[in-house]
């Protein structure tokens, strides 16, 4: 099923100043989109705006031709899911219970827990490798295990569009790659549209079909990583001098930072 998610003239903010102002952006359907940018540049803010967690100050977010504000919140939640950057877990909750709470939008006061819910929860836990943890309390897990449980909750919501804010934080490199592979599977096999914020530029370039580079609340460049990411863009977005080489595995751009103590060694040596 195809979906349209875009923002028109979108301004978002908390205090007197806008964090994101008058932004137009379109999330390509059926693709993996990765948002990159320096800390505090407004990535989470944009994601929260797209997921109608933050009311627009100007403009609007359009989901399938309708303004998100005009839709019922549960209807949106059956199509569009979001994993916040810092979710909070109630005291003492178990893994299975937490993942099960992702089924909220599919239930109502007359339609309670069903076999379909069980299946969605099981699939989400199985695919994130958290099924063995089902009866453990969340507070007894490691940071990376917890992160995977949260991802499982977002997947249990079973939406065609999934927005994830830094889902790889706390994960070791193996689990980072596994999680991104899993998201790619979901994208390829179930045609889910996926938007994520990542801080690892190399993984971002490798997994993204579409990359959005943000700076100070504005989009600097967007497009396929191979077309968009070069040394100049990285320097502009992060203020970091670097070299960009082809990734030996995927041929996507690979960023090698310089830093003040490391200058390039001449080729001849």
């Amino acid at each position: 099923m195809t979906h349209e998610l875009r923002a028109e003239d979108l301004s978002l903010g908390y205090g007197p100043q806008d964090v994101v102002s008058h932004l137009d952006v379109e999330i390509p359907d059926g693709k993996i989109t990765v948002i990159v940018g320096a800390n505090a540049c407004g990535k989470s803010t944009l994601l929260r705006g797209l997921a109608r967690l933050l009311a627009p100050r100007t403009g609007s977010v359009i989901l399938d031709g309708k303004r998100v504000q005009d839709l019922r919140s549960v209807e949106v939640a059956r199509v569009l899911g979001l994993l916040p950057q810092t979710p909070v877990a109630p005291d003492g909750i178990t893994v299975a219970d937490l993942v099960g709470r992702g089924r909220y939008p599919h239930q109502s006061w007359f339609r309670r827990w069903s076999a379909e819910d069980d299946a969605a929860v099981a699939a989400a836990m199985e695919s994130t490798g958290t099924a063995e943890l089902a009866d453990r309390p969340l507070s007894a897990l490691s940071g990376g295990q917890r992160q995977r449980v949260w991802v499982a909750m977002a997947l249990a919501q079973d939406t065609d569009l999934v927005l994830l804010d830094e889902p790889t934080t706390y994960l070791d490199i193996n689990h980072q790659v596994e999680l991104l592979d899993l998201l790619t599977d979901l994208n390829r096999r179930h045609a889910k549209t996926i938007v994520l914020v990542l801080h690892d530029l190399n993984l971002a370039c490798r997994y993204a079909d579409h990359i959005i580079a943000m700076k100070a609340g504005a989009i600097i460049r967007e497009g396929a990583p191979i077309d968009v990411i070069d040394a100049a863009v990285v320097t502009e977005v992060f203020g970091l001098p670097c070299e960009v080489l082809p990734d030996p595995v995927s041929r996507t751009p690979m960023i090698v930072p310089r830093g003040r103590h490391h200058v390039p060694v001449p080729e001849s040596v």
Binding site: V76, V88, I93, P105
Partner: peptide
Amino acid sequence: NRHLDVLELGDDAAKALGAN
């Protein structure tokens, strides 16, 4: 109680799940 359960997850997660 169903709503109480998602409100416990914090405002962002609850809103993302479609709770008012």
